[in-house]
Amino acid sequence: MKNNQVYLYDGSFLGILNLINKLLTVQIKPFNICNKNIYQPSLIDEIIDLEQDDDFKIKDLNVSKEILKTIYYVYLSNNEHKELIIYYFLLNAQKYKNKIFYMRNLKCVNHALKIAKYVSNENHKLKGFVRFKEIKNHVLYASISPTNDVLELLSLHFMSRLKNEYWIIKDIGRNKYSIYDTKKYYIVSGENMNLKEVEIDEEEKTIENLWLTFFRTIGIEGRKNKKCQMNFMPKKYWKYIIEMEDAYEKGNNG
């Protein structure tokens, strides 16, 4: 491996698998792999933009569902080296197959599994923390700002739970929306959307207030434990959890 060869891919999951599949077949160890949409050119890098293999199918990788799921979760993470981590995970997966999940003594395997777990944990937490507001025409609207890119995973969850509802979830940080029309959800970039600030009406306020009343009542004074509350519900999520909004704005523990 030359110490400056950077391989670019189009940013998609299929794109990175396509590239890594190629690298594995020709046995090239990349110095780095970068998403071409966010890649910052540097003078010493030698950029290699391999041509996409148009016929590539995921099954060409010849890995199990579990392995695929793991690398998909890593792909969704905010780790800046995720592409290389996926590469090394797949490199080892060729050798160890499903045994790879127990090769915890290998640093790159361990790393990948930890990241995948981290993403899956955030997804699970947000399944609970997402807060919808009803806007016009009974559409439900929620904002999130997750560390990892879990919008798609969340959409799958709400697709079965709120099957007959129209809903929109916005990832504020990544400026993209998931829009569900009772049949399918569509992930749309914010640049292509012209959504005005969401406004909620009096009736919605009433329901939010009911929830706040419940929330404040259900805690037992004699067992007060703010630290524990904060531990389970990290501050970074407070902004979009209506019962924590006040605490968020005051910038204290509530």
């Binding site: 699970h124 399944k127 609970g128 923390f129 079965s160 739970r161 709120l162 099957k163 007959n164 509802e165 929330f215 404040r216 259900i218 805690g219 037992i220 004074e221 067992r223 007060k224 434990n225 703010k226 630290k227 524990c228 509350q229 531990n231 389970f232 519900m233 959890i241 019962e243 509530g254």
Partner: peptide, 25 residues
């Protein structure tokens, strides 16, 4: 499962909030 209405159950359970006493809601 959601058979034409609203809602389903999550086998592993989901916490939606945590009260001031740290208990899951």
């Amino acid at each position: 499962t959601n058979s034409g209405g609203i809602g389903n159950a999550a086998y592993s359970g989901i916490c939606h909030s945590f009260a001031s006493d740290g208990r899951c809601i």
